[in-house]
Amino acid sequence: MSHVHDHDADHESVYDGLTGGDDSQWAFGTDFEDPLAGVDTTIAEGVDARALGEYCLMLGDDALIYSHRLSQWASNAPDLEEDIALSNIALDLLGQARLLLARAAAADAHLVPTMPADSPVPAEDALAFFRDEASFRNVRFVEPDNGDFAATVVRLVIFSTHRLGLLQRLVSSRDTVLSAIAAKGVKEVTYHRDYAARWFLTLAQGTEESRRRLVDALALVWPSYDELFRTHPVESIAASQGVGVDPATCAGEVDVVLEQILSVSGVDRPDLPATGPVSGGMGRDGRHTEAMGLLLAEMQVVARAHPMGVW
């Protein structure tokens, strides 16, 4: 018997999905599938698969962890518009994270935690939800609690300026997947940076209170700025093979943009020492801040409680 769907019946009852095997009437489908479905993930000649995978993991983890942190503003932002804006930014970053983690898994399957043979968890989810803290490669910059709205604005200005610099250069990556992800990301992060930069200016030139809080936030965030431009050996290898970008090469450009924002806002550049490595390591080495454990616990708890769950 040929299997023919009746389109109307498919959407008749939301309970159908609980009884049958057809999940597509759920709001966004229950299966997000592989975000790289049908994309050619062949690795270019001379590229070290392991380094490419780890490099994608770094950029993917930056996006994932920061996305999760920003999503905590949902229903907590100063007003509805900011709530929606920050959630949208978190969503864009989550999209980038999914693509980058899927790219990492496709480049080097060894990076993906081993799951039971009958596990329904796709590689990108295994990476997001079943890795322990030390395996995450994100910069520590994205980990701290959101704190004051001003601190979120400062962190987002710096993060998105840095990420825009990286993604713009990655458009010419020899890895065609990474290049495509970057080209899309550039368009998104441009909006993120403009959003945060305008808020930076608004808070700096707003009331005495808003300015005070912005200046305090800048002092709070500034010591971790330096971390964004420290080159990890994986980034060096990826850059030398033409697939990645050495973050140090973006430092000058990023600084020019930040200087522009600081000077328009009439805010002095803080004169504060950088928070150095902890036990000789940084976020890219898997050494994270205290905030990371709690963040991961919250982000991973549902997936870990239901390892056979299908979402």
Partner: peptide, 21 residues
Amino acid sequence: TYSGCPAMATMRDDLVHTLRD
């Protein structure tokens, strides 16, 4: 359209449905 567009899975499902129907 956007990296995180949650409508992608639905678009994919709707395309498959329409063609199968």
